[in-house]
């Protein structure tokens, strides 16, 4: 049999460069992240105990999963309620951050300062800043109530949500909708707080839209409202999708949410590493399923400029 030298197409030859570009990242990723995740998958089927070479495994089958689903009193219930909360909160975060980003993208004075201010919560929510007791107490009191009950800011505390609630109910608006709105107003601080990253992403997405498109629309007589819906939204829709996914992931993996604390607690306080790995994998599966559904829905509305 004659061995023929395969002729590669241009695309294939270029593809080899692709491997070259991917290699450094992929290598590090596989080494540091993937192997670790694979290990935790093995752990979830085992009993983990301390041994001579770090840890010892003894096969325990599905008992970790059984513990998570049927024995632990909180896991299932907390997961369900967390999903509910996040699905309600995410649209509000996205809409709010798009709104702010569009405003901050206009030419105006103090643009940089305003952008920095809206990014502050992200800085304030990490590291030492989070740990410093006093300001933390401050943050908590702000997160807890719609008004701030401390000292000079007491004036803001006079705002009462129940007035709005009764007003909306008086307008014969569906009580579910009213509950949703009231819930949002009550959590306004955490919504604003969690949208720092999204605002920045939206702004850099908006920077990618060429001003000439708006100019053309303007010449043709489109109003600002028109060009927002007909230009900004379609052009920025890939970023919207990124942000939707980021928001959901961020909500689910935030280290202070109920499930993450539960898993942490079971791993290191009750020393049941196997069961906590099993829980993490179940939770992981749930999150993936939700993200997949969201991504499928979003993908239908996303408009890529270069798609051919």
């Amino acid at each position: 049999m004659k061995k023929e030298k395969r002729i590669r197409s241009l695309k294939e030859r270029n593809g080899r460069y692709g491997y070259f570009f991917v290699a450094p990242f992929a290598l590090g990723f596989i080494l540091i992240y993937l192997s670790v995740i694979a290990d935790s998958f093995i752990f979830s089927f085992n009993e983990v105990s301390m041994g001579q070479n770090g840890y010892e495994l003894s096969f325990a089958g599905l008992s970790g999963y059984r513990y998570a689903l049927f024995t632990d009193p909180d896991f299932v219930q907390d997961t369900v309620s967390l999903i509910g909360t996040l699905l309600l909160q995410s649209p509000a975060i996205i809409i709010f951050s798009l709104f702010i980003a569009v405003i901050l993208n206009q030419n105006m004075r103090g643009q940089g300062v305003f952008r920095a201010i809206f990014f502050l919560p992200v800085i304030m929510a990490t590291g030492v800043v989070l740990k410093a007791d006093m300001s933390n107490a401050m943050l908590e009191s702000m997160e807890g109530a719609s008004g701030i009950e401390t000292g000079a800011a007491a004036a803001a505390g006079g705002f009462d949500i129940s007035n709005i609630q009764s007003m909306l109910e008086g307008m014969y608006i569906n009580s579910d909708v009213v509950d949703y709105i009231v819930n949002l107003v009550n959590n306004i601080y955490s919504i604003v707080n969690y949208s720092g990253v999204q605002i920045i992403l939206f702004i850099s997405g908006l920077q990618g839209i060429s001003p000439s498109v708006y100019e053309a629309a303007n010449v043709e007589g489109a109003s600002g409202w028109d060009s927002f819906w007909k230009i900004t939204v379609p052009m920025i829709s890939p970023v919207i999708m990124v942000n939707v996914i980021y928001t959901v992931i961020d909500g689910f993996t935030r280290s202070n949410n109920t499930i993450m604390t539960l898993i942490d607690n079971i791993a290191f306080n009750r020393m049941n590493y196997g069961a906590s790995s099993a829980m993490a994998w179940l939770y992981f599966a749930v999150v993936i399923a939700i993200i997949a559904i969201i991504a499928l829905i979003c993908n239908r509305f996303v408009f890529y400029q270069e798609r051919d």
């Binding site: 990723f29 995740i37 290990d39 935790s40 752990f43 983990v48 280290s255 993936i288 993200i291």
Partner: peptide, 28 residues
């Protein structure tokens, strides 16, 4: 921008790893 085998796999793995809980990976 390049078409090569396994690129979708790599990308999917990366996105999936975004969602993984970091607590349970502490020991490995």
């Amino acid at each position: 921008k390049f078409k090569f085998h396994g690129r979708q796999v790599i990308f999917n793995l990366v996105v999936l790893s975004l969602m993984f809980n970091t607590t349970v990976t502490a020991i490995p």
